[in-house]
């Protein structure tokens, strides 16, 4: 029968088509990924993580952190904020004008019109682009995650389930290494009602010797080891904390633009 062969051939083409689409094409399009320029800057993004943070990615992988945490900030769109940069010769008129108007979360046309009004009143104003969406409003990042963020990661740990919060920008949110380590050792000591299991096996508890160790964790009141003992992070815990501190989603790119805060955007 010919139809058996035809069915086989058609199946082969169809299955191969999906391979070409979602394996071959992404490899061709993204495989030679390069650094890109940061928006309004000559610096390149991303730079490789420090060695300790790269080791930390392996600790993150080995303990399956991605089972509960994503590393992808979502964004629903962009909006314009109008920012007054100078009051001009008639500050009272400008202040009166803007006190009655909404300045945040506008679309481009409204923002342009507003800037024209302020300029007409003698003031100076700029339009700032901001990302919008629930994740951004939660403070999980300044913009959505983009392919560039993961250029040097192996394995890429995007995650798919938010039992815990998104970690794409956790290094900006919690830049304190001690906080990260205490949170890993006893999550409930720094986050009320945290559902995260403690990772005590990444730490060792020991008697304080002649002097307390400089690496010992500093706990909030009411938590921590019994008196006379201290908690020391192992190398793996330190690497993991270094990795978490290296997670940022706060660099404006062509794909994911937003305006830097005023002070930073001035040359």
């Amino acid at each position: 029968m010919k139809n058996g062969f035809l069915v086989f051939l058609a199946s082969f083409v169809v299955l191969g088509g999906s391979w070409c689409g979602f394996v071959l094409a992404p490899v061709l399009q993204l495989g030679g990924g390069k650094q890109t320029a940061i928006l309004n800057s000559s610096d390149l993004y991303p730079v490789n993580r420090p060695g300790q943070a790269n080791q930390g990615l392996q600790v993150y992988r080995a303990n399956g952190c991605a089972a509960c945490h994503t590393e992808q900030v979502q964004q629903s769109g962009v909006a314009c904020d109008v920012v007054l940069t100078g009051a001009g010769k008639n500050p009272v008129a400008v202040t009166n004008l803007i006190s009655s108007l909404k300045l945040n979360g506008l679309d481009k046309d409204l923002a342009d019109a507003l800037v024209d009004k302020i300029t007409a009143a003698g003031g100076k104003a700029e339009i700032h682009i901001v990302a919008t969406g629930p994740d951004i409003a939660r403070g999980w990042g300044r913009r959505h995650s983009v392919a560039e963020d993961f250029l040097y990661d192996d394995p890429v740990q995007l995650g798919s389930l938010r039992i815990g919060p998104d970690l794409a920008d956790v290094g900006t949110r919690q830049p304190d290494a001690n906080w990260q380590l205490v949170h890993l050792y006893a999550p409930q000591s720094v986050v009320n009602d945290s559902a995260m299991p403690p990772f005590r096996y990444l730490f060792k508890v020991q008697k304080i010797g002649s002097a307390p160790s400089p690496d010992a964790l500093v706990f909030p009141k009411g938590f921590g080891p019994p008196a006379g003992y201290e908690v020391l992070p192992t190398a793996r815990a330190q690497e993991l904390a270094a990795y978490l501190l290296s997670l940022h989603a706060e660099v404006p790119l062509h794909d994911a633009p937003f305006s830097q805060p005023l002070a930073a955007s001035k040359p």
């Binding site: 979602f22 992404p26 993204l30 495989g31 392919a147 250029l151 394995p155 995007l158």
Partner: peptide, 17 residues
Amino acid sequence: LVAWPVRGVTQAVISWW
């Protein structure tokens, strides 16, 4: 993904596929 890992998010695409 394992033997000769591709770079960046291509890994995620292949893993989802």
